[in-house]
Design a protein around this nucleic acid. Structure first.
Lengths: 152, 152
DNA sequence: TCCTTATTGATATTGAATGTCAATATCAAC
DNA sequence: GTTGATATTGACATTCAATATCAATAAGGA
């Protein structure tokens, strides 16, 4: 079982996978690196392409299986972006919400929104017991906004 | 151009499609009926099956093309439900949010949530210009909650 | 180092989503 | 009511992401 230093997120993930009884392999490590360090949500195919830049042999199936495990351990979650459903992004430690740039995809988590009580009240009014919510903000990041304005 | 009485939602949709220059056909009418009257989001294949109960000849392509047009006119939108991305549900007149039962899928729109200002503030703090948001609540409807409790 | 077994990647398969196109049906114009 | 331009249809073919299979391989505890 791996118990080394945990400098980067992908190293943390290695430890957690290992602790969960999963083996750390070369392809798996490459996938962790890509996904953990990405500043934006990635599709399985994007991950596949990036991984194969340095590890040509890795198969697409391995990508899917690794995502599966990361999801199982709540290290990544599926994100809704540009009509994609399978897009994957790292999870925050606590329950937070995502803000995605509609242009480049660069994403940030945020919290401090006090809406849960409002959600419960809405549920009551409609006869539903609210068990979860899904909130994502879309916008333009600083960089993409700059580019857009520079044209005028 | 169709200008008849608008009793049901599907009839309203017929008028709008017609006004947009699209023709009203038998398959299309059947699809409108199913989608407009559904109390829960449906996948293209679910629509396909339901339509074919009464109209055996209708092809799957027609389903997709009709959904396309309904979406273009903002009469339906894609909904995130049970991992599905293509699931389709009617839109409310104004901008509202959706509350879906995680068990049976029955769905209700709601409004009266004053969060836009908060969203903008969060965006500012992170350097994003917030252009949209996506909020969905998940829960258990009255009926499904009843079933679950009756077991204990 | 050994050995169990999780993991891998090549291969095949599935099935939703999309493209093509001749036949058909709609509906405005007459 | 009839006509005709053309939007629409469904059969068919195709694409390609996602999944299943399985022998070969490699991880990592003993």
């Amino acid at each position: 079982m791996i118990t080394q230093d945990q400098d980067t997120l992908s190293q943390k993930w290695e430890v957690l996978l290992s602790q969960a009884g999963y083996r750390i392999t070369r392809p798996r490590r490459a996938i962790l690196d890509i996904v953990a360090e990405s500043s934006r949500p990635l599709t399985p195919l994007e991950i596949y392409d990036k991984v194969r830049e340095d590890n040509p042999g890795v198969g697409l199936v391995t990508i899917y299986r690794t995502i599966e495990k990361l999801e199982e351990l709540h290290l990544v979650s599926h994100v809704h972006h540009l009509g994609e459903c399978q897009t994957v992004f790292r999870c925050p430690d606590s329950h937070q919400h995502l803000l995605i740039c509609t242009k480049c995809g660069s994403s940030r988590y945020f919290d401090g929104l006090e809406v849960e009580e409002q959600f419960n009240q809405i549920g009551e009014k409609l006869g539903y017991q609210v068990t979860g919510h899904w909130l994502q903000l879309a916008g333009l990041c600083e960089a993409c906004r700059g580019k857009q304005q520079s044209k005028g």
